[in-house]
Design a protein around this nucleic acid. Structure first.
Lengths: 241, 241
DNA sequence: CGTAGGTTTGACTGATCTCAAGTTTGGTGG
DNA sequence: CCACCAAACTTGAGATCAGTCAAACCTACG
């Protein structure tokens, strides 16, 4: 297994799951020229309004997308895991409508927009998979509207943890309910529309209630069923294909 | 101009704007068999989890999409105007991931999913336009996450009013800052993550401040510039193509 | 070690919700 | 044209959730 194959392998497997790609589709994806880049934590990859001519595939590490209010408020719109394409919208949109940045040190594969567009034009199955990937992102965004608009602080945080753990498990990134959480409490707050201080308090509540446990950076979901119930979590929206 | 042409004309013009459709594309769209249906206010058209085999084009009246929490909370995810396709995701998604219902009496055109899929397979420009329409919906959803997560009550309401007025104007539905608002204050609350009571109070604030005016169901945006500033509104995300 | 970023805790403030009672509006039937 | 009704809107008082400010404490890393 060559290095190049391995590196975007996770992304390909993901797309494979969204439409029945055949061997020729796989070949086409593997033949895409990629440039691998290592970046530090908290580096902006795409900034709102920009028109970078490439798509980034997250190979390793974690990232998030966010928008800002004019008053300086920051709202995280999604967390990204290895295998995710970070700015897929650029395929059809002239400009990025949100920022994308790493939240840990990471490595990304850059793909030229032109070659990606070419493949999409020639291979309908790949187009379908990408289209569907974007629809799932949209479904997640809608769930976040619900989360932030209609749930209490504890519920929002619990829901976020459920989502992260589920996506992480689906991506095959190790033990399903014992992992290192890549985001800070400040970032959890920015994702749930809360303050870091309040996130901290509610996290302690969840811990005292025996639903989660934390030691250093290692988090454990002690009572998965209860966490889901608290967060009103139903994974339907995640793989809604 | 035949009736059938007229009725989906608005939707076609919208798509035309998203990709350069040629005459053959227009013909293909016009030749779609549609069934026109009139419905009362507050009727559910699509319910979450269902798999209706048709897409609905809103011809007349207003609609919204929403999801619910298990606790009975309701979050409106978008308001829909004449010319909008209400459940476009069904093109690629097995099941609806949210509810769609009318908020006024309305007439919709039903299009069979199969014929729509056929057209999408044969006419890449139409596929591109539809794809882009979905991306714009996604961009709007992300803006709503920001709105609900990071803005105060007054800002959220102002932002919503700006968005509605802008979309309404873009759809060519009459006077840009003087119109009948189709949603109740309860619905504004469900869209902004607030209580109807609180929406009412903040609406009065905006009125007292001379930013908006209301008589009966007729709303006027008195000071458009100020409303935009209050709501931190930048229409970039709406036509982000 | 020393430092910066992240976490924890406390006391106080303020925005929004809840509950509850009116009032207005628009539609319906007599 | 009027009487009535349900839905929407309005207003007040008190409760609560989450925010703010500020200080102390970790802990990873250079």
């Amino acid at each position: 297994m060559a290095d190049g194959e391995d590196i975007i392998g996770r992304a390909i497997r993901k797309l494979d799951h969204l439409a029945d790609l055949d061997e020729a589709d796989h070949q086409a994806l593997r033949s895409l020229k990629t440039k691998i880049r290592s970046i530090g934590a908290n580096q902006i990859l795409v900034s709102q309004g920009s028109d970078v001519a490439k798509c980034f595939v997250l190979v390793n590490g974690y990232a998030c997308s966010h928008r800002e209010t004019s008053g300086g408020g920051r709202q995280i719109l999604s967390f990204r895991l290895p295998g995710d394409i970070l700015n897929l919208d650029r395929l059809l949109m002239k400009r990025a409508d949100h920022n994308v940045q790493t939240i840990s040190s990471a490595t990304v594969a850059e793909i030229g927009l032109e070659s990606l567009r070419q493949i999409v034009g020639q291979r309908p199955r790949i187009a379908e998979a990408l289209w569907r990937a974007m629809l799932i992102d949209a479904s997640i965004a809608r769930e976040w509207v619900l989360n932030v608009g209609r749930r209490t602080a504890t519920q929002r945080i619990a829901h976020l943890l459920c989502e992260f753990a589920t996506l992480r498990d689906a991506a095959g990134l190790g033990h399903p309910d014992r992992f290192e959480l890549p985001m800070t409490q400040e970032q959890i707050g920015d994702a749930t529309g809360l303050t870091a201080v309040h996130v901290n308090r509610k996290l302690h509540d969840l811990e005292k209630a025996g639903v989660i446990a934390r030691t250093r950076r290692e988090w454990t979901i002690v009572d998965w069923r209860r966490l889901k119930r608290i967060g009103d979590f139903d994974d339907h929206y995640l793989c809604a294909a």
